[in-house]
């Protein structure tokens, strides 16, 4: 008997067979109940429990307001990462229209890519009907692809809410701002925006303006005691500058955090959210209420993937 589709795709990803990625994403995006078991198999096959370690890929979130220059930045960032022979997956997330349910995913048109390059994947994703944030498939996709690619970039639009969301799935969060806009500074000071791991000031070709913005942000962060956040000024227009500084900053952050603990904590938090969504107040009550559930989730095997954690919570709730 051939291996079921989901685990076959998961195993191929685990073996870093990048040709499995598009089909894996199609499966993870599927809402068909017939695909549900396959989807869970895929996530399981790329989970730390099965791999024996956390997936090696670094999940980097890139977010910022529209017009900050994210797509162009990602275009040059990808080129530099590929030049260093690191495989890259880009998940570009755009909002769905509330009225029609459809979406216009235009980032691909702004990113230069070589179709012959098998180590680069660009996938557009719509937020779908999920209120205010990243679609479930985005989280699953980032987790599964991190088993196969060296770097997984998740790009989202917005400032204020979205970087909180992206912090739930990314190891390192970069917020991209334009030099002239004071929004980021205001958001950070007022606490609307969580402090990112890396703050990227674009359009460094504007020279002094960008440098001043960089200094202002740096000072603001210091005054808030956020000494760990790096502030990098980049220019995506040729001659591009600051890109390798950005990569260094992202890498340094990735190395400085305890991925095993952080990812497990994120999975647990997500499992609890999904459990609450799927099983409602009744399910939570069965776990002994919210506070008990939070404690309960901390006793779960940290290497499990999210669906397995949810299943385990359900088992405990029912027992």
């Amino acid at each position: 008997m051939t291996e079921p589709r989901g685990s076959a795709l998961g195993h191929r990803l685990a073996e870093r067979d990048l040709t499995a990625a598009p089909d894996a994403l199609n499966l993870l995006e599927s809402s068909a109940s017939a695909d549900s078991a396959d989807r869970q198999d895929l996530l399981k096959a790329t989970s730390p429990a099965v791999l024996g370690h956390e997936p090696a890929g670094h999940v980097v979130g890139i977010t910022g307001p529209p017009g900050a220059g994210k797509s162009t930045l990602i275009s040059v960032l990808v080129r530099e990462l590929r030049a260093a022979d690191r495989s890259v997956a880009v998940i570009a997330v755009d909002p769905s229209s509330k009225r029609s349910g459809g979406s216009l995913l235009g980032d691909r048109a702004r990113i230069d890519f070589d179709p012959a390059d098998k180590n680069l994947l660009i996938r557009s994703m719509a937020t779908g009907d999920r209120l205010g944030g990243l679609a479930r498939p985005t989280r699953d996709a980032a987790a599964a692809l991190s088993a196969a690619y060296d770097v997984v970039i998740v790009e989202t639009v917005g400032v204020g809410q979205s970087e909180t969301e992206i912090a739930d799935i990314a190891d390192t969060v970069c917020v991209v701002v334009q030099p002239a806009s004071g929004d980021a500074l205001q958001f950070i000071k007022s606490g609307i925006m969580e402090i990112p791991d890396v703050l990227v000031v674009t359009k460094a070709d504007l020279g002094q303006i960008a440098q001043r913005a960089r200094r202002d942000l740096h000072a603001a962060l210091r005054s808030l005691g956020a000494t760990k956040t790096s502030v990098v000024a980049v220019s995506s227009v040729p001659p591009a500058s600051g890109i390798s500084d950005l990569i260094d900053a992202v890498d340094a952050h990735g190395e400085s955090v305890d991925l095993v603990t952080e990812r497990a904590a994120r999975r647990r938090a997500q499992a609890l959210t999904e459990f609450a969504e799927e099983h409602g107040r009744k399910g939570m009550t069965a776990l002994g209420g919210r506070r008990a559930a939070v404690k309960e989730v901390k006793t779960l095997d940290p290497t499990l993937d999210v669906p397995q954690m949810v299943a385990e919570l359900l088992r405990r709730a029912e027992s």
Partner: peptide, 9 residues
């Protein structure tokens, strides 16, 4: 998009 499709442009 207005018809409800996801459009990769």
């Amino acid at each position: 998009r207005d018809a409800g499709m996801d459009v990769v442009y």
